[in-house]
Design a binder for these strands. Structure first.
Lengths: 202, 202
DNA sequence: AGCACTAGATAGAGCGTTCATTCTATTTTG
DNA sequence: CAAAATAGAATGAACGCTCTATCTAGTGCT
C-alpha cells in the first residue's frame, strides 16, 4: 500500500481513527477515563490492541483526542447561533438561547462533559484543550452579542455560560426536577442576564 | 481490649476512620476515584493495606463514605443560612447568598465535587447518596424562602442551585475570569431569581 | 499486684487479575 | 516485492483484596 494515492490512504486512516474515537468515547462514558481499558476499547472496535497503538500512541493521547473532538462538537453546536441577525437576537434572545440549551441536553454528552471537567483538574493537557476551546466559544458568542449592540458582552457571556454549565450539574443532582416549569422560569432570567441594565463598571 | 468500655473503643475507631477518609479524599482528589489505589491511600495514612480493610470492606464503600462526608459538609455549609430571620432574608438576599457562594469557593472541594458528579453517572450507590443529600439541602433552603414569604420557593431554589452549580464548572473552563465584576453582576441576577415577579403557573 | 488469656489492632506477603505498552510475526495490498 | 495493516502473545507493574501471623492491651483470677 506504499502508493495508495496519498489522499485516499489518508482518508481511510481518518475513518479508522474516527471509529476508534467512537468506541473509546463509549467506553469512557461507561467506565470513565481511568476505569476503561485499552483492551476493551480495541475489542469493541474489533481490532487488536497492537493495531490501536498504530493510531494513538498512548492512552493519554487517545483521551486528549476524545476530549478535543467533543469540545469541537460543542463549539459547532453553538455555531448555529451565530447565523442569526441582530434584530432576531435582540427581540428573541431568551427563546433562542433556550433552543440552544435544549440541543445541549443530550444526556450522553453530559456524561462525557463531566468526565472532561474532572479530568481537567489533574491532567494539564486536557485542561489546556478545555481552556483553548472555551476561549474560542466565548469569543464567538461575544461577537454575536456585540453585533446585536448589547453592552458589556464579555460579562454577560460569562454569566450566561455559568447558568448553562449549571444545568447538567443540577440535573445530575436532581433528575426528577420539573423540567417545563424550570425552562419557563429560565426565560426571564436569561433576558435579565443578556439585556438587563448595564452594570456600573467600578 | 475485650471490653474497652464500649464508647471509648468506638470513639477511637471513629477517629481512625476519619483519618483514613482524609487520606482517601486527598488521593481521590489528586488521581480520581479510579486513578487512586488502596495501597497509596494506606501508605499516606501510615497503615497497612490489610488494616485499612478492617475499617472499609471495599474500595467502593470507601468511595461512598468519602462522598457521603463531602455532601454532609455541603449541607452543613448551607445550614448557616437557615439561622437568618425573615427580614434579613427579604432585604439582604443577594449579598447573603453571595456570602454562601464564597464559602463554597474552596477549589479543593470543587475537585471532589466534580469527581462525585462524574462517578454518580455510572455508580448507582453514589447517585443515591447524591440524590438523598440534594433533597435534604433543597428542602432546607426552600424552608428558608418560605419563612421569608417568598412565592414558588421550589422553582426559585432550583434556579438558584443551577446557577451555583454552574460557578465551579465555569471556573474550570475559564479560570482567568474577572472575578470581582462577575460577582457584582451576579447580585441583580440572584435578586431576580429569588424575588422577581411570580411566574404564571401553567 | 501479678500472671495468663483473649480479642482486637496491625503488618505485610501473596493471590489472581488487569493494566498500558511493546514486540514479533503474519497477512494484505498497491 | 515492499511497505503498510493487522494480530496477538509477552512483559512488568499495579490493581483490589485475602490470608496468616504477630503484637498489644485490657480482663479476670489468684
Amino acid at each position: 500500500m506504499t502508493v495508495m494515492t496519498g489522499s485516499k490512504a489518508a482518508a481511510k486512516r481518518e475513518t479508522r481513527m474516527s471509529e476508534i474515537l467512537d468506541c473509546a468515547e463509549n467506553n469512557f462514558v461507561e467506565k470513565g477515563f481511568h476505569g476503561a481499558g485499552i483492551s476493551g476499547i480495541a475489542k469493541e472496535c474489533g481490532i487488536s490492541v497492537g493495531h490501536l497503538y498504530h493510531y494513538f500512541a498512548s492512552k493519554d493521547l487517545l483521551i486528549e483526542a476524545v476530549v478535543e473532538r467533543e469540545l469541537m462538537r460543542q463549539k459547532e453546536r453553538l455555531g448555529d447561533f451565530c447565523n442569526l441577525n441582530a434584530a432576531e437576537i435582540r427581540d428573541q434572545i431568551a427563546p433562542l438561547v433556550i433552543d440552544i440549551i435544549m440541543k445541549h441536553q443530550d444526556p450522553f454528552r453530559t456524561v462525557l462533559n463531566f468526565e472532561i471537567l474532572a479530568e481537567a483538574q489533574r491532567n494539564p493537557s486536557v485542561a489546556a484543550i478545555l481552556h483553548r476551546y472555551d476561549g474560542e466559544i466565548r469569543d464567538q458568542f461575544c461577537a454575536v452579542l456585540e453585533k446585536a449592540g448589547i453592552t458589556t458582552p464579555f460579562l454577560r457571556t460569562e454569566m450566561l455560560f455559568t447558568l448553562f454549565a449549571g444545568i447538567p450539574a443540577r440535573t445530575l443532582r436532581h433528575p426528577e426536577q420539573e423540567r417545563p416549569q424550570f425552562i419557563e422560569m429560565m426565560k426571564p432570567i436569561i433576558t435579565k442576564i443578556l439585556v438587563g441594565e448595564n452594570l456600573p463598571v467600578k
